[in-house]
Design a protein around this nucleic acid. Structure first.
Length: 861
RNA sequence: GCCCGGGUGGCGGAAUCGGUAGACGCAGCGGAUUCAAAAUCCGCCGCUGGUAACAGUGUGGGGGUUCGAGUCCCCCCCCGGGCACCA
């Protein structure tokens, strides 16, 4: 064994060995229970960042741990390879997106392999390859024929910078999620997935996922946004015809308090009323303009205008004025609402502003059963609660919320003017993108046959890979060889669809394709059901809604196509926190900030200065590593300097996986120091000759104590990794153990056997985190043997004597030693006799004595 | 506004079921080694008082439950994230 720890040599050797012996190749015909461990695949942007290192190390720790615990582990890796950055790089450098993407994949694969992840590389896939997207296109055609995918002209979010359409989910605060540009509205024909058809199942399915973080489930539930209420109509006459104004409400119990209706600016009734009302037309135009940015809408002042039209209250027959309101959303429900100013905050504000009547129809019991709040102007005394009862509501007086809703829904249904309805916030998923570098939508437009899906035997529709976009729209539109085709149905000349799919489509099913990446007879084969569902999914919290909802949706689509048998794709989900680092900048006279990388900044006498000129920089606080703040740390530099094991150990040790991880160069050195010390301890032991590990029996006191700590540590580390997924404390426990081992003296056979046992176990326990050094050490300690997770020896945990804490009035006052088998009475007696207690007791007898076995004694005086 | 997290030393964090607060690491301080430095090793390290033994105090603030509260309950403050006129 060599004296020095040389990570570079040792890691290369280990990785070469794993590669030649195909250590991580996962086979289906294996008697061990399967464990499918998946990390969210990367976008091949160019090089790995710290977020990747963290994500994949977490996944690798779990994968390697489960291998050591006897599972048949499958940990695949691949590339989310379609997307805008490739096109942007193409525009900047004149390189085809395909070439750029494949070069990035090669580089990043090398980087991932240098980190030593236990990945089955034979399953690698890239979503931009025809053998992958072929099956996506195939499923698309199936779903199109089934009606799960449909085309409609839709007012969509247009990103003027990326020149593309964004899904609602991709619009954040009125800006494109990637470009940050203000989003405009445009009408474009698009293909939609009918995700709303699965809204209820996507919501209830969350209850079957105990292994998901509560907050992710809450975010998805809020996003789906289920509301139970009543949809009903206000009849009216226009141009001599009978018409109906439909609205949705969750507060049907307040229907008798309706004093006006409000419709969205885009509502047909508003358009109609504006025809001969220029003021109204101008107001509607203003609303449409203002509604571009949703964030502004939220803070916008409530505005409205009377349409001059009236509708009839379905139950009272009253005439109800219709207003256009800028707070009514066309995209939710029917784009119109009943307004009950007495019991809705928004309606109240609106009514106040335009002096519309306010009619209270719900009251609440107050103190002593008296009715509260019949005052005239304060909305907040009139209660929007569902705990009141109806008043001023004719036949419904006295009914509570549920009873009133039932009675009113029944009456509306009898009039054929309404019914109970469940409304969702979730909208259908528009997937058409006016972009080149994506999966072609497999549709052919024929003048006679319409939109024809490409037949399975003509798939894939291959995306030409030698195209260089120039930044002006989609280059496929200029590619005659791509556009011109024959109609699969009639054989006539036809035009191929040039839109490509949202890249979220590819990432919605890749986890299933890993099971059978080489299958060319269909989308998935029976191996998918062998591996699915994924046992552990690891990825960023930023995907809590979009990706994870789409993937769940896709899984159900595939299930309904008979491709998979499970209902949910991911059993357990771990959302890792961000990697953050300090930021440093200087500000020019014009207020322009220049950001400096932490690697170029050092502390001199407590002041942060730039290494190059020694002048101070401003400390900008801790933020997520990003290009814009120039605070990213390059993992490659870290691997080159300290080795992969140090990089892995630090990212696992510095914080629990779900919390954000604060970067610290000193912390990295600390992790490296630990590995060097570990190596040295093993070296010194091996120099004295390896022996058989202790398996029990009589031991000197010190060795016995250490062995007890060893087996406690095995217990803790197993629990920390498996159940708690808290790797920082697992590592801390092994560090403690190694500190204790360093203090263990003695060279007798028994002591040496305990040292051997401890070093072997420590190497295995650390192997999920630092596999290279762990395997190297284990080989030195036990040549020829393969790693096996240590088994807790219950006998080693037994203690003859235990130390108990003695408290007086809850304050720590001393310790006592008692036999492990001592009864409460014995413990109490020993505690009362102890010096510490006698001092406080001063001859008095205690009021009460609390004995917590194995823990403490508390004496109350 | 609503819904989730969270607030513990100089710093990252630990305390898993209400039972010794501050594990482990970083930084710092003292010492050994060295011509010197790095590396390494040993020791100290919440705050206040005290040479010390020790005492008091301490987990954002205030109250409560309990023999005992970082942990449970009520009120408030602050930070982070998500949703945000969803009828």
């Amino acid at each position: 064994m060599q004296e020095k720890y040389t990570p570079a040599d040792l890691e290369h050797a280990a990785q070469a060995h794993w590669k030649t012996s195909q250590t991580f190749r996962a086979q289906e015909d294996d008697a061990r229970p399967k464990y499918y461990c998946l990390s969210m695949f990367p976008y091949p942007s160019g090089k790995l960042h710290m977020g990747h290192v963290r994500n994949y190390t977490i996944g690798d720790v779990l994968a390697r741990y489960h291998t050591l615990r006897g599972f048949n582990v499958m940990q695949p890796m691949g590339w989310d390879a379609f997307g805008l950055p490739a096109e942007n790089a193409a525009i900047a450098n004149g390189v085809p997106p395909a070439a750029w993407t494949y070069a990035n994949i090669d580089h990043m694969r090398t980087q991932l392999q240098a980190l030593g992840f236990a990945v089955d590389w034979s399953r690698e896939l890239a979503t931009c390859k025809p053998d992958y997207y072929r099956w996506e296109q195939w499923l698309f055609t199936r779903l199109f024929e089934k009606g799960v995918i449909y085309k409609k002209l839709a007012s969509v979010n247009w990103d003027p910078v990326d020149q593309t359409v964004l899904a609602n989910e991709q619009v954040i605060d009125g800006r494109g999620w990637r470009s940050g540009a203000l989003v405009e509205k445009r009408d474009i024909p698009m293909y939609f997935f009918r995700i709303t058809q699965y809204a209820d199942e996507l919501l209830t399915g969350l209850d079957s996922l105990p292994g998901w973080p509560e907050r992710v489930k809450t975010m998805q539930a809020n996003w789906i946004g289920k509301s139970v209420g009543v949809r009903f109509a206000f009849p009216y006459q226009l141009d001599g015809k009978d018409e109906q104004l439909w609205v949705f409400t969750t507060r049907a119990d307040t229907i008798m308090g309706v004093t006006f209706c409000a419709v969205a600016a885009e509502h047909p009734l508003a358009t109609r009323a504006a025809q001969n009302n220029p003021a109204l037309a101008a107001f509607i135009a203003e609303c449409k303009q203002g509604s571009v940015a949703e964030a502004d809408m939220a803070t916008m002042e409530k505005k409205g205008m009377d349409t001059g039209l009236t509708v009839t209250h379905p139950l009272t027959g009253e005439s109800i004025p219709v207003w256009v309101g800028n707070y009514v959303l066309m995209s939710y429900g029917d784009g119109a609402v009943m307004a009950v100013p007495a019991h809705d905050e928004r309606d109240f504000g609106f009514a106040q502003k335009y002096s519309l009547p306010i009619k209270q129809v719900v009251a609440e019991k107050g103190e002593g059963g008296r009715e509260k709040g019949f005052s005239t102007d304060a909305w907040d005394e009139w209660y929007a609660s569902k705990t009141g009862y109806c008043v001023n509501s004719g036949k419904y007086d006295g009914l509570d919320y549920a009873a009133a809703v039932d009675a009113i829904a029944t009456d509306l249904a009898a009039l054929n003017l309404g019914e109970k309805k469940t409304q969702f916030r979730l909208r259908d998923w528009g997937i058409s993108r006016q972009r080149y570098w994506g999966c072609p939508i497999p549709i052919v437009h024929c003048a006679t046959c319409g939109d024809v899906p490409v037949p399975a035997d003509q798939l894939p529709v291959v995306l030409p890979e030698d195209v260089v976009p120039d930044g002006s729209g989609n280059p496929l539109n200029k590619l005659a060889s791509f556009i011109h085709c024959e109609c699969p149905t009639c054989g006539g000349p036809a035009r191929r669809e040039t839109d490509t799919m949202d890249t979220f489509v590819e990432s919605s099913w890749y986890y299933a394709r890993y099971a059978c990446p080489d299958y060319d007879g269909g989308m998935l084969d029976e191996r998918a059901n062998h591996w699915l569902p994924v046992d552990q999914y690891v990825g960023g919290i930023e995907h809590a809604i979009l990706h994870l909802l789409y993937a769940r949706f896709f899984h159900k689509l595939m299930r309904d196509e008979g491709l998979v048998t499970s209902d949910e794709p991911f059993q357990n989900l771990l959302t890792q926190g961000m990697v953050v680092a300090d930021t440093f900048y200087r500000e020019s006279a014009e207020g322009k900030k220049t950001w400096f990388n932490p690697a170029d900044v050092e502390l001199r006498e407590g002041v942060a200065v730039l290494k190059s000129d020694g002048q101070p920089v401003i400390v900008g606080g801790t933020e997520k590593m990003s290009k814009s703040k120039n605070n990213g740390v390059d993992p490659q530099a870290l691997i080159d300097l300290y080795g992969a094991d140090t990089a892995r150990l630090f990212t696992m040790f510095a914080a629990p996986p779900e919390q954000s991880l604060e970067w610290s160069d000193a912390g990295v050195e600390g992790a490296h120091r630990f590995l060097r010390r570990l190596w040295k301890q093993a070296y010194e032991h091996v120099q004295g000759g390896v022996v058989a590990a202790c398996t029990g029996g009589d031991l000197p006191e010190a060795a016995k104590t250490l062995r007890r700590q060893l087996h406690q540590t095995i217990q803790k580390v197993s629990d920390d990794i498996e159940r708690r997924k808290q790797f920082n404390t697992a590592i801390a426990a092994v560090m403690e153990l190694m500190n204790a081992l360093a203090r263990l003296e003695g060279d007798d056979t028994a002591t040496r056997s305990v040292r051997q046992e401890t070093l072997e176990a420590a190497a295995v326990m650390l192997a999920p985190m630092v596999p290279h050094i762990a395997e190297a050490l284990y080989t030195e300690l036990k040549p020829g043997a393969s790693l096996a997770w240590p088994v807790v020896d219950a006998a080693a945990l037994v203690q003859d004597e235990i130390e108990l804490v003695v408290q007086v009035n809850g304050k720590l006052r001393g310790q006592i030693c008692v036999a492990a088998t001592a009864t409460r009475e014995v413990i109490e007696a020993i505690a009362l006799e102890s010096e510490a207690v006698q001092k406080y007791l001063q001859g008095q007898s205690p009021k009460k004595v609390v004995v917590v076995p194995g823990r403490l004694v508390n004496i109350v005086i």
